[in-house]
Design a protein around this nucleic acid. Structure first.
Lengths: 197, 197, 197, 197
DNA sequence: TTTTAACCGAGACGGTACGTCTTGTCTTATA
DNA sequence: TATAAGACAAGACGTACCGTCTCGGTTAAAA
């Protein structure tokens, strides 16, 4: 008695070819001119092979995203000891991606993909570090007494990444001073006229 | 001498029928199952009439958005004198839209539309009040000495609306306490452990 | 009491412009790429003006044909006294039209128009002379005792013009000897091995 | 080594359904109200399947014609030994088709199709027997000394079929005596008053 | 060694939607 | 009231992809 499957095993070559084609075409075409037929042709693979392993274009993009094929970095914040500086440099790196012409296109394509597909949304969230690595960095700032113990770390990250997305969607260019102000806002250095309450 | 054009004038009935059909179908179908053929059929209008006046589905959606046909309110913040309370209630209203099942769908559809089409992005930005009415309310808070004179009002709005979008994209539900924390973050009441610098 | 009609009278300029445009476009486009909109634009006339006076493109073409705007000649047979020679030269003229590249196209377009529209069919028949002028010429041959008194003149004409059409439809080129043989066939000089009956 | 192609083979069911729909619709609609969309719907086939195999409506009609789906018979002349009787009966059969109301419509539709499309023209020529079977029958008449050895057989056929087409185009009804006269004309029994030359 | 289940490429299939084109009618303002 | 301009509803055009399915060929574990 056995539950071993028979037959050949999944072709790694096909899998890699599909993901390669996905990242190449997603960068060039964006989300909605990205087609399954295009991927099949570009990868030299049959459509059935794609649909056997990925049920939709969202899933394909989500997996490419997870494997870091859609943009290079992990966007892990630095740890110089200065939380303001570290958040600024982290945000600079993200905006740098979003500002270069093909990067802006990529970011909007990712947003479109996330809007259509829940997995892409979650993966994008993770990939931008808005969950783990950023929260860890903020926790260290709390430990170093640079942030209040009850600072809402999760919401700080969301507000920052959210601002990036807002600016991408409204096609508003972003420069250094804007980034500084954003970091100041969420770190609370510059808004309240007095520490009320 | 005359520069009057000849011929029939644009049919207001057709224009209204198209925009009505657009808002109805956009709410039901979302961005990418929203089709020009569907709009034409629903509006009882020929496709050519649509393409004569709107060059793409993005333009159609942008105009519906601008006319307030896609969601009801203008999302103008209240003015009770308490900026924290007013921002909270404003954000509650936005999240209330985003949290009801068809509202979440609408928000994601709008994000998808904004990602594909620059006009939709800009209009969405305006419509959510992230530009004018919100900034005006914040300015009043500055005048009332509730915010520092150099508080970056624009960035505060972007961070808040951005957070809404982040949560919509990552399918994270939002409750009252989260909203309170978000407002606290951007108003600077709760993050910095001491007013450094 | 008066029976004078009121208002402006039919514009002869518009009528001529339409028929001019018709012949020009029919020659260039052929029957089924010939469009009412094209005629209106080419003539500098509104579509309504065309539809007011001609109910269909067939009627338009029929009238152009009748006015001799689609091909120049009337194709009236000569009268040298030699019926064989006269029919040959008449057929040569018709084939000359049908053989030059744009002429072949014109002939096929006319056939298409005739197939769709009864008026065009009748007018084309008349214009090619298959009814009146050819029959007259044949009658003179009867009078001159070159043809039998009971020769079916109508059918002779039809057979000749029909052969032209057959060759146009099957894209078979035609040369001098073929024409000679056609004339011989219908004049009965070369078929019957003996004058039976 | 193998030259077998991979993948599914062309569906004979789809091919037959398309050609069936073609003949049915062509008979009902005629050439220019015959639409590819109509064929696809009638055949229960997608438009793409039609365009995959036939590049135009002309090609579709030509193939239907070739397969004998547009009119039943091959129009092969009989061989009773009497060439005049055989041609008459052959022409009677053709005119019988062209005279019944839907037949006249069919003939004109075929002429329109032939005028637009070279293949249809050639196929129609073949199908009416004007090339092979008729010429063979005439050759037998030559062998039987009923026609002169140098009778232009090809031209005789063209003149006869051409006359059918002329009458269809000019909407002239045809009766038995007309057919007799046509046959007499091309067989040379009744035209020349004397066997000149 | 044979069988057999699952893989693979190729690509045909029924569909939906695209954006364009043409038809014939209707509307407006001018002459 | 005839006209030019042109908006309109209707619907066909040919193209691009969708997701499913079928075909032959290949591979590797199970029998």
């Amino acid at each position: 008695m056995s539950d071993h499957r028979q037959g050949p095993v999944r072709s790694e070559a096909a899998r890699v070819a599909v993901l390669d084609a996905t990242s190449r075409l997603f960068a060039v075409k964006g989300y909605d001119h990205f087609t399954m037929e295009g991927v099949a042709a570009e990868a030299g693979v049959s459509k059935q092979t794609i649909y056997r392993w990925w049920s939709s274009k969202g899933e394909l993009i989500a997996e490419s995203l997870l494997e870091g094929r859609l943009f290079p970095d992990q966007f892990v914040p630095l740890e110089t000891g200065d939380i303001h500086r570290d958040l600024s440099s982290w945000l600079h790196r993200i905006f740098a991606l979003a500002e270069e012409p093909q990067g802006e296109f990529l970011v909007r394509s990712l947003i479109a993909a996330a809007a259509e597909n829940a997995d892409v949304g979650r993966r994008l969230n993770e990939q931008l570090g808005a969950t783990d690595s950023l929260t860890e960095r903020l926790q260290k700032a709390v430990d170093a007494n640079q942030l209040r113990a009850d600072a809402p770390l999760q919401e700080i990250g969301e507000a920052l990444v959210g601002a990036v997305i807002m600016r991408a969607l409204s096609r508003t260019p972003t420069d250094g001073p804007v980034i500084e102000r954003l970091v100041s806002v969420v770190l609370g250095f510059s808004s309240a006229s007095q520490p009320v309450r």
